[in-house]
Amino acid sequence: MTPAVNKKNPMLPFPCRVIETREEISGCLSLVLRSEDNAELSFMPGQFYMLYVFGHGEVPISVSGFSSETDRLVFTIMNVGSVTRALCTVQVGDTVGIRGPFGSTWPLEQAKGRDVLIIAGGLGLAPLRPVIYHLISHADDYGDITLLYGTRSTDTILFQDELAPWDKLDCMQVLVTVDSAGPDWTGHVGVVTELIDKAVFNPSQTTALTCGPEIMMRFTVHALLDQSLKSSDIFVSMERNMKCALGICGRCQYGPHFICKDGPVLRLDQVDHLFKVREV
């Protein structure tokens, strides 16, 4: 198989067929894409593709499936704008253009031999799912894996059918919290940062990966630093408006970084000074 990315013209979308759609939660869909000519569709956990809906436009979407499956790509998309709305209405058999993979990856090598603390908020669990799959399938290379996941309500818990099986694994613990819940809910109630106090981990032996809206990551980072994690052991997945995905147009500039090229995954000590700057 040849890779899907067009080395000669990385701005040119590559046609893929929608082979499966799955509603995850209300307004949120997972799309499974396969290249129309069986080209290899590779990525590393943390990377994103530009998805092109013909006649509507292009959006950056992180891959949310297995990185070991090279015949397909899974994207989890929330309907929040015109292109994502169009993506959420595609049918099996439709064609979608893709460019990629782009961007940096979660620090799988650096985290080897260490405990991994994953903190996800809302749809931020989607870009972290590939790293969870990787850690589980290479559990011998890593210490304990802890997933702390926070979302608004019990109706907005993403990948709900996977959380309980993950929690049953010897190598993994999953704690889920929602902002408020009815009497049937048996999990935690409160913001995701409260779970950091409840999780048991050794700060000097832990690599933390976090993804979610920036305000959630900011509070998470504060809580992790309060627990004595070093900023060089904390990784965040940043989001900014991406257009070219090649570090040319500058639309996703974040201080000295282009999120499409230097990110989306960045080590906290590369960006912590920017976290304190408003309107960057």
């Binding site: 950056p60 926070g150 940062t193 509070f219 991406m242």
Partner: peptide, 22 residues
């Protein structure tokens, strides 16, 4: 502090995967 964060809806509608709101 926890209540204020809950009120903020920190998980929001802005999402990691659709970075442009397009």
């Amino acid at each position: 502090h926890n209540t204020h964060r809950q009120m903020l809806n920190v998980y929001g509608t802005e999402q990691q995967v659709d970075t442009s709101g397009q």
